[in-house]
Computed example of a mutant assay.
Amino acid sequence: MNALGIRVKVATYGELEPQMGQPILINDKRIALFKVTSGELYAIEDRSPHPKGGVLSEGLVSGHYVFCPVYDWKISLADGIVQAPDEGRVQTYKVEVLDGDVYVSV
């Protein structure tokens, strides 16, 4: 989170489908929002860190990981770290649910 800590309403919790990424745009930042089967929410940068990129909101979700749709890199939704043998990291964002509304802080 940056010094401003802007919190933006991005969805309603009940509308989010488990295992499906939802692309959102906040202040020119492309963010992927995920609801995993346990009900937890995660928000990460919506671009894979490899040179050709990859829209992570379109990736396959398994557990607490998303797989890049271009190179199949496995990326942690919790901390944004690309799993070995690949390397890299994507930005993560704080997600909160207040009265059924979902907020992401940037």
Score class of each variant (00 low, 15 high):
Leu56Asn: 02
Gly21Trp: 00
Tyr103Arg: 13
Gln91Asn: 01
Ala3Met: 05
Leu25Glu: 10
Val36Pro: 05
His64Ser: 10
Pro49Ala: 04
Ser62Tyr: 13
Leu77Gln: 01
Ala32Glu: 12
Leu56His: 06
Ala43Trp: 12
Asp28Tyr: 03
His64Thr: 13
Asn2Ala: 07
Ile26Gly: 04
Gly54Arg: 03
Lys74Ile: 13
Leu60His: 11
Val82Arg: 03
Ile26Asn: 02
Asp72Met: 10
Gln83Trp: 01
Gly14Ile: 13
Asp28Gly: 04
Gly88Phe: 00
Leu77Thr: 00
Glu58Thr: 05
Arg30Leu: 07
Val36Tyr: 09
Ser76Cys: 15
Tyr71Arg: 08
Cys68His: 00
Leu16Glu: 10
Asn27Cys: 05
Pro69Ser: 08
Leu25Trp: 04
Gln83Asn: 01
Thr37Leu: 13
Lys35Gln: 13
Pro51Gln: 08
Lys52Gly: 06
Gln22Met: 15
Gly54Ser: 10
Phe34Ser: 03
Leu41Ser: 08
Arg30Tyr: 12
Gly88Gln: 05
Pro18Cys: 13
Ile81Asp: 04
Thr12Arg: 08
Asp28Ile: 03
Phe34Asp: 00
Thr12His: 08
Pro23His: 11
Gln19Val: 13
Asp46Glu: 06
Ser38Cys: 09
Leu60Phe: 15
Pro49Ser: 05
Glu15Thr: 09
Val90Ser: 03
Ser62His: 12
